[in-house]
Nucleic acid binder design. Structure first.
Lengths: 155, 155
DNA sequence: TGCAATGTTTGCTATACTACATATATGTCA
DNA sequence: TGACATATATGTAGTATAGCAAACATTGCA
């Protein structure tokens, strides 16, 4: 135990497994409501506000026509709403509906609840140290050009 | 800043986003080789050794017939091998091939590399604290009945 | 006005996942 | 041996993702 990078990496890898597990379980709630690509689209809309179909496609790295049909299904489920853009009548603006927002909220809530659950079990002294360490880590990670939000995995 | 649970949760949530982002990017490498369900199957085989098709189906929570065809595709790609079980000739044992193992290794390596990259940027003192905090977190998380490995997200 | 560029949708095709019902092979027990 | 249970595979069918090509609507500019 010397605080070397290697040891930190090992610890982070272990924490990574745990936190990814939490993230996956939080998605379990909605897996029969929306598919993963659909969920990703919702996350993009939540974090970046309403978008054109084209922008959405670009962000998700899918073909515009695929985005159209993905929106078909999300709209069919009442999770998004399509409106003609106010700026240009050929553009279609996609917005989260209250139901879509609620779905995302339920995922985050579940995630927070579980993380909170785990944090409660930490020794107070360790917990104090964890805050600084984890914030520092998140900050350091943030310096990397972040594409994860594109994939809808970050919330 | 009082070291309360809420603050820890916030920090963990931030770290979670960062680490999940890392995990997702590490999967990006292989996304045109295997699908997510296929990857999950490989992870199960890696972490739990060779399995029957039936057990695999159960662990992945999919129908046995779905597992059969998933194995068809993985075998077609040379990532797994099917053999008649030594115990019973009606059972089929599924094993990772060296190629399958290599694929998983490449994902983990990419993950380690990126985490290492981030860890390097941490202040040595913080890094020291991070090790303890994250190990404690991973340990605390481990006490929860963990189903994440079922989903193939933990490695 | 007419024509090119832009944004979205639709037609088509292919692959994968999914399950249910059924078939086949094997094991087990009476 | 014969009947039943178990393990896997195959037939069939529905849904989602995905991309390419083509149609369509709209914008903007010459």
């Amino acid at each position: 135990m010397d605080g070397s990078v290697g040891e930190t990496t090992r610890a982070l890898l272990a924490a990574s497994r745990a936190l990814v597990g939490v993230a996956v379980r939080s998605l379990g709630t909605i897996e029969d409501t929306v598919t993963l690509p659909q969920y990703r689209a919702l996350v993009v809309l939540a974090s970046h506000g309403e978008q054109n179909v084209g922008i959405l496609a670009e962000v998700l790295a899918i073909h515009p026509s695929t985005a159209t049909r993905l929106c078909d299904r999300l709209a069919g489920k009442g999770l998004i709403e399509r409106n003609t853009s106010t700026e240009s009548r050929r553009e279609v603006t996609v917005t989260l509906t209250p139901a879509g927002r609620a779905l995302l909220r339920s995922v985050t809530q579940r995630r927070v609840r579980e993380i909170n659950n785990i944090a409660t079990r930490l020794d107070p002294k360790v917990r104090r140290a964890a805050i600084d360490a984890l914030n520092a880590f998140a900050a350091a990670a943030g310096e990397i050009p972040d594409v994860a939000w594109k994939l809808g995995w970050t919330s």
